[in-house]
Write a protein that binds this DNA or RNA. Structure first.
Lengths: 352, 352
DNA sequence: GTGAAAGCGCTAACAA
DNA sequence: TTGTTAGCGCTTTCAC
């Protein structure tokens, strides 16, 4: 109603509520030691004047540093994916450190659940105010999540979700929809008579779930839109190049494929195969803005990459917790990231 | 060298340089009234300790509000495009007001250069510290830009550029590349035997330049990639629906078109035509994430929309000036925005 | 030229 | 249960 741009400070409020600024501060932070009636009165005044705390003054005055910890996989040379979320996390970290926040990053090996356990254990002993977790290992994460629940430590999931859990938010892809998008793209670039090869390349069980959701989306779209293309499926559990090479050679010997869809970032290996074997006339689609993939996009061997803004995932995960801790601002529960389509003509300006 | 995370404040520096904090502050801000020798000594200490000012304290202490003004077209019901940059500008505005920055938005009618002139004149008289300008009217903007140059007031361009000027930065699309992207998309979804119709819909001369750059990109790509599709071109200068309807009907009577490419956000009018006339088998591509366009995307009448993150353009324009003023951080000169591809399957998660 | 001191809006420790 | 007060690191004014 009033255009008064929140120029009220605790001093004015104190006067208006007939209390001292100390009391205002107490109810602002829901600290004990305020009589119910007083609290009520103060709250009323707060509401009435739509008090907005001056975050700068707050940051300057409070010397207690809050600690956010981030527990995600490390980027391996084999899979550079996690470099991106880490970058976003770091950016957020440097932004919030002005507000006396600390950020600690703990990295585990996504191929080895045993690398996760000690980190999770360690956190049980330590002091922290919020957690960003890539929940690759549901079982192993249980004690940690329980600890958080018990101590009212908020946590958000990044990249994949544990639907049943009490997380404050999820930042990551809508895998099913991502599959639909792939199917639509394939539908546009292919003809009904064409044949499609779907390739899963992964040795991790947890990952499989990721990939299968995409497959489901693809199948659903194909069915809903009456796509007549014949769909072949190839699962490669050995992620070495020689294994991939062999599996592909085998498959392509027996079938004529026009569209090849790789359900994750390993698409570069397939591209390498296509390049080395000089397979012609295949349209190749895969995932993620990674250097290897971009190189093949540039060469025209990969046609499209889908991408879910991994950097933004990291950034937003941290910032949502910052907002929650600093301003009691509850984040949205589910935050699906954009499904970006990257090609040779637009990758240069892409923002991860 | 030292891992000392800039914990030195002006107080310590004062002690180290054997001066008072007042003097430190003077050299920090290059204010007069410091003996050359003293200044030297202080600067040495500053360097040595790699002093990083505490921006929070600075913001809290300084009561002088800096003023950024934004001069862009208003969003009309006819063309909602500018709603998006405005939104980004507003978001940035609310973020930087914490740092005692003010932001004023001045809107002109993009169809009427006479609406621009008084605003530009008015600014010549007023006090402001930085400017965001959508340079639709080059001629009319000259006095203002000159005024800025003379008074060392930094300015950035949004949405379109004036290459020769002294702007601190440009935030907007790479129109040529945008045309290339369109062509690539068309290449994927069409066959060599297909015919393409390129449609420019605009009555503004300045706009024409925008559209022509896209056309150039398209043509270049087609040539470079040996596209055999026949290309027709239609220019519609009357932007009312009936005019568009008539022009399209005329054109489609004489030619069989498989792909229709509209070079701006007016694609919704073309979609309406296709819907009303029940034209079948046409793939429609256009620009911008606007409600009307999205509605037709949803219906399956528009197939793809290209988009250059208009909200982000507004946001970044303002923030770059904020960074420049607040931290003397020079922005990158040219900031081409991403070229996003939006379809029925991914528009839900799109971030403007 | 230089220093001292009073805030900026808030937090937190200490009194009452 | 409440009020008072001393800072947080910096800017700015005023006095020397």
């Amino acid at each position: 109603m009033k255009k008064d741009n929140s120029l009220v400070g605790i001093k004015e409020l104190a006067k208006l509520a007939n209390v001292s600024i100390g009391t205002i501060d107490r109810v602002l932070h829901d600290r004990p030691g305020v009589a119910a009636k007083t609290k009520e009165r103060v709250l009323a005044v707060l509401q009435e004047h739509d008090y907005q705390p001056n975050m700068i003054a707050r940051a300057l005055a409070s010397r207690k540093a809050r600690r956010i910890v981030v527990l995600i996989p490390s980027a391996s040379p084999e899979s550079a994916y996690w470099k991106a979320p880490l970058e976003g996390v770091r950016t957020a970290g440097s932004e919030i450190q002005r507000y006396s926040f600390t950020l600690d990053v703990l990295l585990f090996d996504q191929n080895d659940r045993h690398s996760f356990i000690p980190l999770a254990m360690q956190l049980l002993e330590e002091d922290f105010d919020a957690l960003v977790l890539a929940p690759m290992f549901h079982q192993e994460a249980q004690p940690l999540l329980q600890h958080c629940d018990e101590n009212k430590i908020p946590y958000v999931f990044i990249n994949s979700d544990i639907p049943g859990s009490d997380s404050a938010a999820y930042f990551g892809p809508d895998l099913f929809q991502s599959g639909c998008m792939s199917a639509q793209l394939i539908n546009y670039i292919s003809n009904p008579a064409d044949e499609i090869l779907l390739v899963h390349i992964s040795r991790e069980m947890e990952m499989q779930h990721h990939l299968l959701r995409k497959e489901e989306g693809l199948l659903q779209y194909m069915q809903d839109n009456g796509m007549k293309q014949k769909l072949h499926k190839l699962v490669i559990r050995d992620t070495t190049y020689s294994a991939i090479e062999q599996a592909l050679a085998e498959q392509l010997k027996n079938t004529t494929i026009q569209v090849l869809f790789v359900t994750n970032s390993r698409v570069a290996s397939v591209a390498r195969f296509i390049e080395e074997q000089q397979v012609a006339g295949i349209c190749l689609i895969g995932f993620d803005y990674l250097p290897d993939n971009i190189a093949y996009l540039e060469k025209g061997i990969i046609d499209f990459l889908l991408c879910h803004k991994p950097v933004a995932q990291g950034y937003k995960s941290v910032m949502s917790l910052f907002q929650l801790l600093e301003a009691q601002q509850e984040p949205q529960k589910i935050n699906y990231m954009p499904i970006d389509i990257i090609s040779k003509e637009n990758y240069r300006y892409y923002e991860n």
